[in-house]
Design a binder for these strands. Structure first.
Length: 446
RNA sequence: UCCUCGGUAGCUCAGCUGGUAGAGCAAGCGGCUGUUAACCGCUGGGUCGUAGGUUCGAGUCCUACCCGGGGAGCCA
């Protein structure tokens, strides 16, 4: 067993010490291990060198004393430049002076490749420069922490829906026409015709919900809007659950449980990463059910009280959203919107025909709209009237109309923007930090 | 598309009412046995975004354009 494990991990000498990861050093105290990684930073004096090794799971300081390793190995240690790939053998020691609690007393240093002058130095850089080097920036502590949290958020979301009987049914990325008609679409050649990159999988999820009951899709979506703000990407990931036999209240209850479950999971498993990000934990810990639910009209009244007058029927701007969110210490649902402000498929409010049963969820701290959704109309007659009122091409929606012809039921769902959600959890300044390789109006590289 | 701020060394920036280019970090060399963005000394490093213009003289003033940050609209 031991031998096969050693062979599986490969490069360590057949008879050498076991290979360890920085995050597992606690299991190897007072034992010799092999660590494989990259030199994150180093400090040295004439007789002692401190090599900060990064291996993807964490960083650990490796103490190399000339008196212990001899002239030759000490010279090798001092030769390694920032981000050189190295193998270090040494004894794991518990040490309260070390940030992670452990450090390595080095017995051997092997350089795999000496890195050229690394562009990202330990000192400060501008975002533009860092984004030009995003492929390298991923190695730094901050992006590393954010993207590890992103990974956990994705797993948390998938587990949340799987636990509740949702089937994952992904929507296509090439689409024949606009899902919502309004936003700008990326157009691409599709053999002898045109196709568009999806801006939402929702209509397909409605079809899937009538087949599977409870479904969700999760994938990239594309918006060709010329938006240059900290909340916008041209390519972002959206998770869209849809439930048959459900209404607006069901959608809000689901969204609320989802947010709390995922934040709890991040708080349980990523304290160190949140610390790296200097995130104010109290702001996340107070995210508990229930979230306040206010109507569009009530939101208007709050804005009015704050001296911001908005004409009835208008959508809110970014600053309005921040002002509204500041009224609450947790996310807030705003529901029952003027028909004109929302998409054509929204179900009208039976108690006020000017309104539709749509909902937005605003995150605290100015992170804005994270969720948009609502109850979809089940009526073919009403749907047709709205397709016409919004000036949409009826022929593109024939299949969608079918959903109202063959066993139409009340159904509801929402979409959550992954990067805005992750950005909020991590407290990032801009959503582009919440995706590995951001695509914005001005960035298609690297 | 509009508003606004910016573009000077590899990076982050300073450069006053126009007078001939500067710091820290990084790189190279040397020193230091407990450093935490280590520290100390020395060295090299510039088409001041581009093109015009004003001037004896432009990084600095004017015009146009290019690129980027932030915001508006639109959205998750």
């Amino acid at each position: 067993m031991k031998r096969s494990a050693k062979e599986r991990i490969g490069l360590s000498g057949k008879d050498g010490p076991p290979k360890a990861l920085v995050e597992n050093l606690g299991e190897f105290v007072d034992r010799e291990v092999l660590l494989e990684g990259w030199l994150y930073n180093s400090r040295s004096s004439g007789k002692i060198a401190f090599l900060l090794l990064r291996d993807g799971s964490g960083t650990v300081q490796c103490v190399t004393a000339k008196a212990d390793v001899g002239e030759e190995i000490f010279a090798v240690a001092r030769q390694a430049t920032q981000e050189s790939s190295i193998r270090i053998t040494g004894m794991v020691k518990k040490d309260d002076r070390a940030p992670g609690g452990y450090e390595i007393m080095v017995s051997n240093v092997e350089i795999v490749q000496i890195a050229e002058e690394y562009p990202i130095t330990p000192k400060s850089h501008g975002t533009s420069f860092l984004m030009d080097h995003r492929h390298l920036w991923l190695r730094s502590a901050r992006p590393h922490a954010i993207l590890r949290i992103r990974s956990t958020v994705i797993h948390g979301l998938r587990d949340f829906f799987a636990d509740r009987g949702f089937t994952n049914i992904d929507a296509p990325i090439f689409t024949p026409a606009a899902c919502e008609g309004t936003s700008t679409l990326f157009e691409t050649d599709y053999f002898d015709s045109k196709a568009y990159l999806t801006q939402s999988g929702q209509l397909y999820m409605e079809a899937a919900a009538l087949a599977f009951g409870r479904v969700y899709s999760f994938g990239p979506t594309f918006r060709a809007e010329k938006s240059k703000t900290r909340r916008h990407l041209t390519e972002f990931w959206m998770l869209e659950p849809e439930m048959a036999w459900a209404d607006l209240d069901d959608a809000m209850a689901l969204a609320e449980s989802m947010i709390v479950a995922v934040i709890d999971r991040v708080l349980d498993t990523h304290m160190q990463d949140l610390e790296t990000l200097e995130r104010d934990l109290s702001k996340l810990e107070r995210i508990q059910k229930p979230f306040p639910r206010i109507t569009y009209d009530e939101a208007l009244a709050i804005l009015e009280k704050k001296g911001k007058t908005i004409e009835w029927g208008e959508d809110f701007g970014g600053e309005d959203e921040t002002v509204l969110a500041e009224e609450f210490d947790r996310p807030v649902f705003i529901h029952r919107w003027p028909k004109e402000a929302k998409a054509f498929y929204m179900d009208p409010d039976p108690e006020d025909k000017r309104l539709v049963l749509g909902v937005d969820m605003l995150a605290p701290e100015g992170y804005g709209e994270i969720i948009g959704g609502g109850q979809r109309t089940a009526s073919l007659e009403y749907l047709d009237s709205q397709i016409e009122a919004h000036g949409l091409p009826a022929e593109a929606f024939e299949w969608y109309r079918d959903l109202r012809k063959y066993g139409s039921v009340p159904h509801a769902g929402f979409g959550i923007g992954l990067e805005r959600f992750v950005g909020w959890i991590c407290g990032t300044h801009h959503v582009r930090e919440a995706i590995p390789f951001p695509r914005t109006m001005n960035r298609l590289y690297p």
